[in-house]
């Protein structure tokens, strides 16, 4: 399945919060939907879930208008919660049933997901008696209990310890391998890099960057080099690097400098110039930005 957001616009009380956003996601892949707080990610997700209606634009599923009611969607909202006074299995089964599952199937699937989440021993306990991390896993089990084809996870890792995060990571990887369409919204870029083949960065209601993650990284790293020094402090290193012909210092990262290479100068010539300088080299090579660096560069300033 291919899911396309096309020129979606949305206003609240006369203020437009989405200014015609477009991006797409595919089955068997995870799309990382990124953006600063208030950028419009949750609004976009809520339009997909038919919680809000778009003012204009449309969502297409394999080219046809998308109707959330016709698809099995597993949605883990950022603002989440279940019934604290009800037992774990009872509410998972309830949520599966209101999404259309038969009772026997819902119970069977609920038990299977609780086991997968290592929560079987808590099935008859009231939710409020579980730790925050376990409540989070119950929430994820309830999101996946009805075998959704589209899975929308909004900050699924918040509140999880490293062990539980690993369980969740494994589950998300399995879902992607199972051919599910996963939309993954998070501020934890490490997880996005780990799962997502494509990303869309929304800033102030506009998509400012989208595409394959590896292509984006390559594009952001083009003509860029990285250098760090054993003994030179960053300020001194920057002064020395500024004297080398064919490069300009365009930033600092990972304890060193990011250099921009002029098109007419080869890497070999630059290496030679650095070797001839008095820079005490620690590391030198092509620069591949992290997603965090790309994100900060793209969405770091308010529009």
């Amino acid at each position: 399945m291919k899911l396309e957001f096309k020129d979606i616009r949305k206003s609240f009380d006369g203020t437009e919060v989405l200014h015609g956003i477009s991006f797409e996601a595919q089955s068997g892949q995870a799309l990382g939907l990124l953006g600063r707080n208030g950028a419009g990610k949750t609004t976009a997700i809520r339009i997909l879930m038919d919680v809000f209606h778009a003012d204009s634009g449309q969502i297409l599923s394999d080219g046809a208008p998308f109707n959330a009611k016709e698809h099995r969607i597993g949605y883990l909202p950022e603002e989440r919660g279940l019934y604290p006074k009800r037992t774990v299995l009872e509410q998972i089964v309830f949520l599966a049933r209101i999404r259309g599952m038969k009772k026997a199937d819902a119970v069977e699937s609920g038990l299977r997901w609780l086991e997968r989440m290592e929560l079987s021993q808590y099935k008859s306990r009231k939710l409020e008696t579980l730790s925050k991390g376990n409540q989070q896993k119950v929430q994820l089990a309830s999101t996946l209990v009805h075998d959704p084809e589209i899975i929308v996870l909004d900050e699924p890792f918040s509140g999880l310890d490293p062990v539980n995060s690993q369980v969740l990571k494994d589950v998300v990887k399995e879902l992607i391998a199972d051919g599910k369409l996963v939309i993954f919204s998070s501020h934890q870029m490490g997880y996005v890099e780990e799962f997502c083949d494509t990303i869309a960065i929304i800033n102030s209601g506009e998509v400012v960057l989208k595409g394959g993650l590896s292509e984006i990284k390559r594009a952001f790293g083009k003509n860029r080099l990285f250098i760090s020094s054993i003994s030179d402090a960053p300020d001194l290193l920057e002064q020395k690097a500024a004297k080398i012909d064919g490069i300009t210092v365009c930033g600092r990262a990972r304890g060193g400098l990011i250099l921009e290479r002029r098109e007419d100068v080869t890497v070999k010539e630059i290496m030679k110039a650095i070797a001839d300088s008095d820079i005490d080299i620690d590391k030198f090579g092509s620069y591949e930005p992290t997603l965090t660096e790309i994100f900060v560069e793209t969405a770091g300033e308010d529009r």
């Binding site: 949605y75 909202p77 989440r80 919660g81 279940l82 604290p84 209101i98 999404r99």
Partner: peptide
């Protein structure tokens, strides 16, 4: 308790 968003997107 924020259960509402899960509920209204389920039925």
């Amino acid at each position: 308790n924020r259960a509402i968003e899960v509920l209204i997107t389920s039925t």
